[in-house]
Design a protein around this nucleic acid. Structure first.
Lengths: 334, 334
DNA sequence: CTGAAAGCGCTTACAG
DNA sequence: CTGAAAGCGCTTACAG
């Protein structure tokens, strides 16, 4: 492999000069520069980012750990991070924790060993405080993405309270009282916030606590069972809100199996929703997240933090869009 | 930051010994090892993978460049690569070329500068031979993923000929003669292969060339126009095969707008298909790619190649599954 | 069983 | 306008 020494010899200069030509870090005489450039060309020299990073103690790379790369929303966030990073000459190191706190912890270690300039983390559901505590005690910047926390870190996620409230009010306005929330694993901040907002909005609508139906469980099997039980109860819900794509799929399978029509037999709305959902029947009312934008913002927050470690942490909430479609019936005039 | 020197001092040993304890590269006396381990613990020392990589000229990282991280199939391949890499202690560096050959070329350079041990590449549609030529002249291994080439590299993709043939035969057996193939950008090997197989199968079914309808264009707008034209022709197709999810979406929009019913008015089948497609009407006949497996295999081929650079390149074709659903009508008895 | 030292390929004050 | 040299944090023969 070609190194600077070879280039320098060929051009008849010192490696200092080669370095400065490469990086534009000091003036180099025109003729000298040409010789160096020519030597670089001829030897097809390629800078060694590792050696460079080691000297500069800066790798121009960032780490990204997502909890579930399979979810379309996360796939889009990854693209948002990648796009922004690349445009700044930053390389992205990607890891997937698959909702496993141990895998998450290992990924954090691996990325820190690689001396990433900073880390973006969408925490696994069961992730304890250890990982975050670690970052409080060292100076690699951390940005929390999608799944937020009360700790003093830069964070970017979506607004959950407002859309949940709006959805509940929309359903209540159409006469629904028995609304089932499929919340999933409420250790996940996003899901917890939606659950909390649901309770609040239902209470505000004067629906007594015992009629506020909610399934909050981390296990898919129990979720499925919960949905089955709820739909076969003596007074089943007339409306369902699913808090994620996976949960929506579980609910839709059950609804389909029972031959329930939407919205006549049961109204239905979901967070995140399905790709290309506009093409299919039934048309689902959906809370669409600006996932790409969440990823891009995470990368921007991180870049800012890397540039200035002293600034106050900022927490950014991006607003989702509620797309009303036929699954919740005609939209109430407002 | 803690370095080996600090650990060595605290433990009262040389940095050699610290290194050997860390890597298990030679025997260290039990009591000495304990002291070192304790010192590592106390100083919360973390190995510097950069320095290590530089000495060993091996980074334990691989690069992955995909042409379209947004497509669900690629998102799944990414997961496949990530999963396999992580399980081997390999870090994944991810880049997205967004079907732009220039971005692809820049990504290749960036990753080579980072001295990845190898590279997995799903080429951009318009990518010329330059990138591949570069790899022929240097010794960083390259694995081609999904989009294959005739060049002597390790490659993994899906079988395209057989499923296309099967689909055509299925439709012909149901009496279809005017079948429209929406092939998309045939510079992409996958799409070209499907197009070629289509022509072959149609010819084998004795359907004259002028009745072999196909749209082959790189531009979404022209594709849309082509679909519109085809469907409004005096003798429109009675069946459509779309060669990717994006192309299928374009076709379905047009079909929906015209109020055509599937399969009564028009039969429909698509490659790749939609996530959670089982939940929606209409139920689409789909050629499902083992995308995760493609990614995992790419990572395995690369690992093998890194371990042994002299072996013959291997080309792996994974078989997709055709899922017959109502959009192509009842399945012919076979 | 362990240590001293060379060297991986760069960047960057220091000096002229 | 340019060069000689130190040093980033490791690994690994070499030596005992």
């Amino acid at each position: 492999m070609t190194t600077m020494v070879k280039v320098a010899k060929l051009a008849g200069v010192s490696i200092s000069t080669v370095s400065h030509v490469l990086n534009g870090t000091r003036h180099v005489g025109d003729e000298t520069r040409q010789r160096v450039l020519k030597a670089i060309e001829e030897t097809s020299y390629r800078q060694d980012a590792l050696a460079r990073a080691m000297r500069r103690s800066r790798t121009d790379s960032i780490g990204l750990i997502v909890s579930d790369g399979g979810e379309p929303a996360f796939a889009e966030m990854i693209r948002g991070v990648e796009d922004t990073a690349t445009s700044q000459g930053i390389t992205l190191l990607l890891a997937n924790s698959a909702e496993d706190p141990q895998r998450e912890a290992r990924a954090v270690q691996a990325l820190l060993e690689r001396r990433v300039d900073g880390l973006i983390l969408a925490r696994a559901a069961g992730s304890g405080p250890d990982t975050l505590a670690e970052f409080a005690n060292q100076d690699t910047p951390l940005v929390l993405m999608d799944r937020l926390s009360g700790d003093p870190f830069d964070q970017v996620g979506v607004e959950n309270h407002q859309p949940t409230k709006e959805l509940v009010e929309h359903l209540v306005a159409q006469g629904h009282q028995r609304i089932l929330l499929i919340a999933g694993d409420t250790r996940v901040s996003t899901l917890r916030e939606r659950h909390d907002a649901f309770t609040e909005a239902m209470t505000a609508a004067r629906i007594p606590a015992e009629d506020q139906l909610a399934i909050t469980t981390a296990e898919p099997d129990k979720t499925d069972a919960g949905i089955r039980d709820a739909l076969s109860a003596s007074s089943p819900p007339t409306a369902v809100i699913a808090c994620s794509t996976v949960l929506a799929a579980a609910a839709l399978r059950e609804i389909q199996q029972r031959g329930l029509r939407m919205p006549e037999d049961i109204a239905f709305a979901a967070f995140d929703g399905f790709a290309y959902a506009d093409l299919f029947e039934p048309q689902l009312t959906t809370v669409r997240q600006p996932a790409f934008q969440v990823g891009a913002t995470a990368a921007e927050l991180l870049a800012r933090r890397i540039a200035d470690k002293s600034a106050e942490p900022s927490v950014v909430r991006l607003a989702p869009t509620i797309e009303y479609r036929s699954s919740t019936g005609p939209r109430a005039a407002s």
